[in-house]
């Protein structure tokens, strides 16, 4: 390819480029199609996984959240943006959260708190417009539940009373029927009842061999269970 050949092929490539940009120009200009989302006028469709500040879920059965102030989220939060307090409430066995404050300006939306929540009462809110005029982004998560709280406590008291009587009756029946084994089962039921109330850490099961059964482990340290699910803590014998 000589001098003129080079010049010509160079011009050719330039013309190809201009053809492409013109075709795009024509698509926008004549086809009236562009890719811009005119944001304040059009709102983007939020994805199902959209993440904004966390909030407490309002369950339909109870009409309120199910936070038991176990502080699992507060402990796992890498940004230390969750502060909550609460605990025993007069009249019911179930523990309740009193204050739940979250500083959204620190949050990195990693979702570890949601994973950590033993009662699954946390979820992302779907607030798209997160901008504000000051840096104070502390969110009071329990604010919307406060007025229902007394009502809920009353309901819960009734439920718990019923459950207690039922359990008593059941326990008596069981006692009548069988001896020690049955008694143990009743214990377990009781435990399941008080499930959500447990706050302390789960026992370090790492050292325990995988074959070890959960029941004894639980029975050993029920008060320590961070997440008092009835599940067997996996014995993850670490590979070294």
């Amino acid at each position: 390819m000589g001098y003129f050949g080079k010049v010509l092929s160079g011009f050719g490539s330039l013309l190809t480029g201009m053809r492409i940009t013109f075709s795009q120009f024509a698509k926008t200009f004549f086809g009236r199609k562009n890719v811009t989302l005119q944001y304040p006028k059009e709102q983007p469709k939020l994805a199902p996984a959209f993440r904004s500040a966390i909030k407490l879920i309002r369950f339909e059965e109870t009409g309120t959240h199910d936070c038991v102030a176990c502080k699992a989220c507060e402990r796992i939060c890498p940004s230390y943006c969750i502060k909550l307090s609460g605990g025993k409430v007069e009249g019911i066995k179930k523990k309740r959260v009193a204050e739940f404050e979250m500083d959204f300006s620190l949050c990195s939306l990693c979702g570890l708190c949601i994973d950590a929540c033993p009662t699954d009462t946390l979820e992302y809110s779907k607030v798209y417009e997160e901008a504000g005029y000051n840096r104070d982004w502390r969110v009071d998560l329990v604010a919307e539940f406060r007025e229902y709280e007394a009502e809920f406590v009353e309901k819960q008291r009734v439920i718990e009373e019923k459950a207690a009587t039922a359990k008593k009756a059941k326990a008596e029946a069981a006692k009548k029927a069988k001896e020690a084994k049955k008694a143990k089962e009743a214990e377990k039921a009781k435990e399941a009842e008080a499930e959500a109330a447990d706050t302390a850490e789960k026992p370090d099961t790492a050292e325990k061999p995988p074959a070890l059964e959960a029941k004894p482990a639980k029975a050993d340290a029920p008060a320590k269970a961070e997440v008092p699910t009835a599940e067997v803590p996996t014995a993850e014998a670490p590979k070294s």
């Binding site: 940009t21 795009q24 698509k27 926008t28 562009n34 890719v35 811009t36 005119q38």
Partner: peptide, 13 residues
């Protein structure tokens, strides 16, 4: 406007 149209945008509106 021309740059916007070439780039599939809207330009000033």
């Amino acid at each position: 406007k021309v740059s916007a149209w070439i780039q599939r945008r809207m330009g000033p509106t």
